[in-house]
């Protein structure tokens, strides 16, 4: 059994995101980068299968700048077997990233390709389904659990109120959602081994991919209003009026109702 997990290195979720000088991208000076959280869950899901069956091979791949190496090393430290970096410009359109990943998958012939359900920088969630499309494989979204049963796999897709369990014969693509099993903390020997491990590189040309797909372009970025200037209501008898006011604000102002 072989897994290929597609990763992306993004600004860490603890980073206080700021808009950069041009106003079209976030400031990246001195920030901490890490593997996108859903990708970490994807790695964990694959490694759990490897725990159950040690003959399982888990490969990881990323498409982008050399910074992605750190995400790959993190995955190796967690226990993945090998890693590949596909060198590409950072503004490569998402569909071309997916084509590159699909090309890598065609070479590696994994049984299951996993992606985080979305990367936590652009939050698009396009690459995973696109990889499946370019491979011509079925995919399952919101994946929280994968159980092998005979020559097929039970893939658990989280939906409101429970899980749909899909039975798939590999190859298949899974788009991984958060689950209760948090990504493992790497052991120190794992970290050290990962540091020394060679990470082969590929380029887009060798995979037959050129930047050709349509892409979306950020024209402006702004921070949401700062927390702390919240509206405070005092209950002095008329609970109903306050309750209606809050409910209306949730609907009209913050649009969450």
């Amino acid at each position: 059994m072989r897994f290929l997990v597609c990763l992306k290195q993004v600004p860490d979720s603890t980073v206080k995101v700021k808009v950069g000088a041009g106003g079209k991208a976030v400031a990246t000076e001195g920030i901490t980068w890490s593997m996108s959280p859903y990708d970490e869950y994807a790695v964990e899901l694959a490694l759990e299968r490897k725990d159950a069956d040690p003959t399982t091979v888990v490969s990881v791949v990323t498409v982008g700048s050399a910074r992605g190496r750190d995400a790959l090393r993190q995955a190796l430290a967690m226990g993945c077997d090998d890693a590949t970096l596909v060198n590409a410009p950072e503004d490569l359109p998402a569909l071309d990233v997916a084509k590159a990943l699909a090309a890598v998958a065609k070479e590696m012939k994994p049984d299951i390709v996993l992606c985080g359900k979305q990367a936590s920088d652009d939050d698009q969630g396009l690459v995973g389904p696109a990889v499946a499309e370019f491979l011509g494989w079925p995919h399952v979204g919101m994946l929280t659990k994968a159980v092998s049963s005979g020559d097929a796999w039970e893939l658990w897709r989280e939906v409101e109120g429970g899980h749909e369990v899909w039975k798939a014969k590999p190859p298949v693509v899974g788009l991984v959602h958060k689950s209760d099993k948090e990504p493992r903390y790497p052991s120190l020997p794992g970290i050290m081994k990962a540091k020394k491990k060679e990470i082969p590189e590929k380029d887009l040309a060798s995979l037959g991919v050129t930047a050709s797909s349509p892409k979306i372009e950020v024209v402006a970025m702004e921070l949401p209003p700062q927390r702390g200037g919240g509206k405070i209501f005092k209950l002095d008898g008329d609970a109903k009026a306050v309750a209606e006011q809050v409910a209306n604000l949730l609907h009209t102002e913050s649009k969450v109702l």
Binding site: G230, F233, L235, D236, A239, K240, V242, A243, E244, V246
Partner: peptide, 18 residues
Amino acid sequence: DYGVVGDLFEFVPAFTEA
């Protein structure tokens, strides 16, 4: 973002209705 200072047992049922 929205804070209500007071008895939640009064507020919550009214909020549910709202």
